[in-house]
């Protein structure tokens, strides 16, 4: 388990981190979501022992990582925001180089390189210089280089910046379905959908601070807003109003002849509502669940809109 306690860091007069704390459990994908300049890269640089914090501490399994940087560096993999490998070499040569630098034997390095090339879908481009790769391929190699030595914790700093949607989805799937099996992941992003889809738990960062953290559900619960369910169909007001929803968790907020809007506290009771309608011969044409989402939460916490465009 990784415990981050009150990390602060300033560059001159810029306070990049104003004291951030969070915990990452083994086997978890933890996201740091925040706009540019929030301090994500600074946080990752400190957590990966590349720069020293001004104050605060980080423990992994009870050990202070700053007192044992060599030990810590062996445990972690780092995928930086920028492409960091030798473009004049092939993908395999890059993997073999870092394999050797991480102390793998020649045989181990070759096996690992072969596996990662296949996993990352780079097998067919084995002999090509990396400079000929597409943006998505370079990003995938960038990730492969971070896990060549099978780290226990993988740090990824906006690993999908600057590539198209399909390539992004592809990388998310790789992380979620394969790489995650071997290691815990700490993932920074400024993209809502990445955070929503990929991360088990999230911290929302802005201006060097963590504004909120928890699972997606917990975060949304913090918002205090309820899920709205809109039904369309042919409704008789009398029948609908006479229905006993049974709990105080449901409230009818709008009614018109062909649509009704219900506010529910817990999504779990939606099936019960549907059942109740059917029992009472109320015909439903469509159902639309409008959850309060990360976007609304983010906007509320930071006053910033993260959606691109």
């Amino acid at each position: 388990m990784l415990t981050v306690e009150n990390i602060k860091k300033s560059f001159g007069t810029v306070q990049a981190l104003k004291g951030i704390s969070f915990e990452v459990n083994k086997g978890e994908i933890f996201g740091l979501l925040g706009p540019n300049g929030a301090g994500k890269t600074t946080a990752l640089s400190i957590l990966t022992s590349l720069i020293d914090p001004d104050s605060g501490s980080v423990f992994y399994d009870g050990e202070n990582i700053f007192s044992h940087p060599a030990w810590w560096r062996k445990k972690i993999g780092v995928v930086p925001q920028e492409i960091a490998f030798y473009e004049e070499l092939t993908a395999r040569d890059n993997l073999l180089l870092w394999g050797a630098l991480y102390g793998l034997s020649d045989k181990e390095a070759r096996e690992r390189a072969g596996y990662l090339l296949q996993l990352m879908g780079l097998g067919s481009k084995e002999k090509a210089k990396v400079s000929e790769f597409s943006g998505g391929m370079k990003r995938r190699l960038n990730i492969a280089l971070g896990i060549v030595h099978k780290p226990e914790v993988l740090f990824l700093d906006e690993p999908t910046v600057g590539i198209d949607v399909q390539a992004r989805v592809n990388i998310r799937e790789l992380l979620r379905n394969f790489i995650h099996e071997e290691m815990a992941i700490i993932y920074t992003t400024h993209q809502l959908e990445e955070a929503e889809e990929l991360c088990d738990r999230l911290a929302i960062m802005d201006e060097g601070e963590i504004r909120a953290q928890g699972t997606l559900k917990e975060l949304i619960a913090q918002l205090g807003e309820e899920t709205e369910v809109e039904f369309t169909g042919d409704f008789e007001e009398e029948t609908v109003r006479s229905l006993e929803f049974g709990t105080t968790n449901v409230r009818l907020s709008r009614f018109s002849g062909d649509s009704i809007l219900l506010e529910v506290k817990e999504e779990e009771i939606i099936p019960d509502i549907v059942e109740l309608f059917m029992k009472n011969d109320v015909t439903i044409n469509t159902m639309d669940i409008k959850r309060p989402n990360l976007e609304t939460l983010f906007l509320k916490l930071t006053g910033k809109n993260l959606r691109e465009g």
């Binding site: 560096r73 930086p80 960091a84 490998f85």
Partner: peptide, 13 residues
Amino acid sequence: NKFIIKRLFLSEL
């Protein structure tokens, strides 16, 4: 000035 050198030193080099 590139991350590549940090990546080198993150290994056992």
